[in-house]
């Protein structure tokens, strides 16, 4: 179970408080969506949960299975099963995509006391997942995200998710920059990863992504707080009426 308790966050660089007391409990197998207008703190929340430097926790706690992860480094959080699919997956010239994914997978296996995969074992698993997610193996031979289209970058994120098999996935505006077909493909990948012991937190501006990835709960976030929680119908309400009436 993943739990956020009365979380208050400052961005240290600008000394600005962005998150003002969030409480959220996500049980295994559940899909939660967070929607909200620009500047409501959605991306700050995703970075804070995954441990990015510069996000100072003023108060509150983040727990995974009842244990605080606040002191864990980003790589330790990842190895414990937290995965952030980035809104803008970063391009890193000179880092080979394949070598990066294999290092990530083996680092997590090592952390969890498992044997590392040799290149042949890794390639076998990679091929299976890449085929299913319609990811071109040629794309994987290129430097990490360099020259990838928006759709390729997002598919690469989902492929990493499929290989790393996290327990808690944060999807930060995964629909941004995607056309309808790419969104369908990415959603298909996400849906294939839904399981009883894996939970999701989907951050989005729009209801359209939730047509393809059906959430169990929808939360509306504004000014660093969750101001309303409901079922999938809440997303439809936002789509229909916008955020203004909820903010008022």
């Amino acid at each position: 179970m993943f739990e956020i308790k009365d979380l208050h966050v400052n961005i240290s660089e600008v000394e600005k408080k962005i998150i003002n007391g969030i409480n959220l409990k996500i049980n295994p197998g559940e899909v939660h969506a967070i929607m909200g207008p620009n500047g409501s703190g959605k991306s700050t929340l995703s970075y804070t949960l995954s441990g990015k430097e510069g996000y100072e926790i003023e108060k509150g706690d983040i727990e995974l299975d009842g244990e605080s992860i606040l002191d864990d480094e980003p790589d330790e959080r990842a190895a414990k099963g937290i995965f952030l699919a980035f809104q803008y997956p970063i391009e890193i010239p000179g880092v080979g995509n394949l070598s990066f994914i294999r290092t990530a997978l083996n680092s997590q296996r090592k952390f969890n006391g498992k044997d590392e995969l040799n290149p042949a074992e890794f390639l076998k698993i990679l091929r299976e997942k890449a085929d299913y997610l319609n990811v071109d193996m040629e794309m994987l031979k290129r430097p990490l995200n360099v020259g990838f289209s928006g759709g390729e970058k997002k598919r690469n994120e989902i492929l990493q998710m499929a290989l790393l098999e996290p327990r808690f996935c944060i999807l930060d505006e995964t629909d941004s920059g995607l056309d309808v077909d790419a969104m369908k493909q990415v959603s298909k990948g996400v849906n294939s990863l839904r399981s009883e012991d894996r939970s999701f937190l989907i951050i989005t501006h729009y209801q359209r992504l939730l047509d393809y990835i059906k959430p169990d709960f929808v939360h509306i976030m504004a000014k660093g707080k969750i101001i309303k929680t409901g079922g999938p119908e809440l997303a439809l309400e936002v789509e229909d009426q916008g955020y203004t009436h909820l903010l008022n």
Binding site: S50, G51, A78, F83, L84, F86, V95, S107
Partner: peptide, 9 residues
């Protein structure tokens, strides 16, 4: 951060 968010120390 990107590399570490995938579990790379």
């Amino acid at each position: 951060f990107y590399l570490r968010s995938r579990g790379i120390p």
